[in-house]
Every structure is written in C-alpha cells, then in structure tokens.
Design a protein around this nucleic acid. Sequence first.
DNA 1: TATATTTGTTAGACTAATCTAACTTTTATA
DNA 2: TATAAAAGTTAGATTAGTCTAACAAATATA
Lengths: 226, 226
Amino acid sequence: MFYICSMLSYTEENYLKALLKLSFQNEDKPEAGTNEMAAYLGVKPATATDMLKKLKEKELVTYKKYGKILLTETGKQNGIAILRKHRLWETFLYEKLDFSWDEVHEVAEQLEHIQSAKLVDKLEEFLNFPEFDPHGDPIPKANGEIPSIDKVLLSELKEDELCKVVAVKDTSTVFLQYLEKLSITIGTAIKVLERIDFDGSLSIQIADEEPRNVSMKFAESLFVKR
Amino acid sequence: MFYICSMLSYTEENYLKALLKLSFQNEDKPEAGTNEMAAYLGVKPATATDMLKKLKEKELVTYKKYGKILLTETGKQNGIAILRKHRLWETFLYEKLDFSWDEVHEVAEQLEHIQSAKLVDKLEEFLNFPEFDPHGDPIPKANGEIPSIDKVLLSELKEDELCKVVAVKDTSTVFLQYLEKLSITIGTAIKVLERIDFDGSLSIQIADEEPRNVSMKFAESLFVKR
DNA sequence: TATATTTGTTAGACTAATCTAACTTTTATA
DNA sequence: TATAAAAGTTAGATTAGTCTAACAAATATA
Ligand SMILES: [Mn+2]
Ligand SMILES: [Mn+2]
Ligand SMILES: [Mn+2]
Ligand SMILES: [Mn+2]
C-alpha cells in the first residue's frame, strides 16, 4: 500500500539510513543537523547540504535553511526498508556463511542496496524470520515494524545482579573482536561482582570464568537483560 | 598470485563481462567491435569508445583507433571473476530461495558487483561447489578455470536421436517461460521424431509426452547432450 | 575505382556526487 | 549585548558515465 520508492540511488539510500539511525540515537528529538549527518556518512557538510535539497525535493525529509532535518513518514519507511535488508543480510552471512560478527557489516553495507522485493522476503523466509541480527539489533518486519526488546546497559546494573548479553551498542571491529576474546557473545551470562566507584569500572564474572575487570567504556557499550 | 583488481567500478565490471561474453560468442576470433559492445550493453557507441579508452589505460583491453577490441589476460580474468559471481548468485537464488530460472538473472546482475572475496568463496562452499548455473552455464572456478561440457544444439540432431537438455543458449524470459510451459528444464529427455525440411522445424517427444512440433529458432536455442 | 554504407571517433553538453574556499546565520560566551 | 565560535550554505570546480550531433575511417558495392 505505501511508501517504498524504488527509484532511490545507492547514495540517497545511505543518507536515509543514516538519518534513521541518527533519529534512534537522539531519542528525545529525532532530528539531525547537517554536520552531524555529514560526519556520520564521512562526507563534507557542503555535500550533505546538497543532498538534503534533493531529499527535500523528493519529500523524504522536511527541513529549511539552517534548520534541523527530520525524516518524513515516506523517508522513514524507506530508511527502515534499507535497515531491514542490512540486518537480514548480516544474519545470512553470520548464520549461513560462517562470517564472524565483526565481518558482516562491511559486506551488508553493499548488499543492502540490492533491489528486489522478492529477494528480501525470500531471504527472510530462508533465515526463518529472525528477530535480531548478529549484533542483537532488531530486524524490521516487512510492514516496517521494528521488534523491541527490554535492554539496559551493563553499566546500569548493581552489584550482584545477574544478566544476559542481548546486544552490542558499539559495533566497531575492535570492540567485537575484544568481546570474542573474552568469550562474550549474544546470550552469554554475566554477573556483576563489584562496582568500582573510582573509575566506573566493573568487576564481572563471564559465564563460569574467573572474575575480571572491565572499564566503564566497556560497560557502556554492551546491552544486557536482567 | 594475480590479475584480479578490486578497484573497478560497477560500470567497468559490466564492460569487462560483456567483452568476455562477446568473446565466447565470436568463437573463432574473440574480438569485439565498438558498436557490438555498445549494443550488448545498451549504451551508445560514443559511450563505449570513451570507456574503451579508460579500459585501455588500465591495461584491461588492447585496441587501437578503429580497430577491434581484445581483452588482455588481466581483463579476461577480471571478467571471469564477475561471471563466476553472477552464476554462483543465480544458483543461490534458484536453489535456496526458490526463484525461477527466468527471475535469477536480473538480480544476479546486481549481486555480481558485491566486493568480498570471502563472500564468493563461502557462497560457493555453501552451494556445494556447483559446476553449472540454473541455465546450464558453467560456473568458473576460483582459479579462473571454466568447466566445459559436451553439448550440441538440438537443431543438430538427426531423426530418432535421443538426448538430454544440458543448457539454454537463449536466456530471455520469454524463452525460459516457454520452456517451463513445455515442462522442459535442465535434464529433461528429448527424442527427435522428425525433421521437417521445409522450415527446419522438428517434431520432438519431451519425456513421455505427446509429440509436438518446435521451430528451428527453438531448436537453435537449446543445448543438449546426445 | 568511385561511391555509398557501415563503423567508429570527437566535441560539447548534462547529471549525480563529491570537494574546497568563501560566505552567512545561529548559538554560545565573555 | 557584543563578539567569537560553531553550524550551515553557496559558488565554482572535478570526475564518472552518459547522451546527441557532427565528423572520419574502413568496408562493401555498383
Ligand atoms: Mn550502504
Ligand atoms: Mn548489525
Ligand atoms: Mn551487472
Ligand atoms: Mn545464467
């Protein structure tokens, strides 16, 4: 019934997805600024301004000169469609082709632009309608709905609390590989043994292993469920 | 050890693949002309000339003004790499995602440009090292080798000869859908009952069905093995 | 061989996406 | 509130890929 334009360029799709992700990040106000957007995409602000005019022309964003950027409903739905493809492809690479969770993103970044409605839906079916991608992020449904899940940052837990890892907030290769080194993956049980007030670091027990200390930055990069 | 550049644009890749396919078509001399190439790619000759200069600059083709075009070894290997990806993806879509053989080409045309050596090799493994794509065309190996197979056109058979379909020469949707209607697919047994000299058409028996007449054009579009 | 046809090239223009450098508006701060 | 800093825009240039129209070379044909 709606929304999804297929006449978007590779580049326009990247801008829409970026704006969508920025809107998740700025929870309170789902707006973005030109510089913020440019930085996120690795282009110069001048470039972003130009693209903005084009997206506005196509009624995918609302904005006026020197103002904030907001996705229209159409823009949002198109962004969600890209995100859906991205996360389904990541899941495919991880589940079926033995990619590790720090390798999937780069390739999915390309695959998300393949145009074929049938492909996406068949892929989803082939993967058995997964709800979450390898990083624990929710995979939007064909109708645009995004499953949600209870989650808090590891850093919010109190001493003696038990939890399970449900997602990573930071998906950088360096963090993901570090997690792998610590044998932490989605589903791993963690117990908070002690909170060190001095620097915000935590002493935790990962599964049945020896206690170890992790930094505040670390604890703020991992989502868990109590 | 060799050959595969990764710094080729989507467009350059399409030109290399086109030149490779034209070189198969013109078996005797694997050369192509500017107009031929332009027609194949659906661009104007002027456009093809420009691209040719660029490909020559990169030493992917040899050619001089008003002369014929020939892929260099590097150009050929790069073309083969694209063809390999194309046919592996077609096989994936057909085998794993239930696409029909007239639907796979269009999507593979996009997927063939995804850059990731690991992806191609893992995909091949996931598909169990297939030798042929859904149209019966050989899938190049990682080392660039292209499996070959004995095949003749259905039109070359004599009366009373028996054969099996091994590949389609024409991969157009209209032809593939017609084959489907006739219950002909790769592996189907066919017996030539009669050759009609008048117009080159054939009376054939498909599997155990009633005899039927097919045109010369049809018989020249289907590869079979005696 | 002279001419016509086919084949291929050049020149000039356009669009999408990008950049740098200069400028303007908004916001923060002294 | 005046000024400095940050945020955002504009102008002009570049590159890749495409086109049309005019031209040139090669080939076919009368
Ligand atoms: Mn992308
Ligand atoms: Mn992800
Ligand atoms: Mn292609
Ligand atoms: Mn094929």
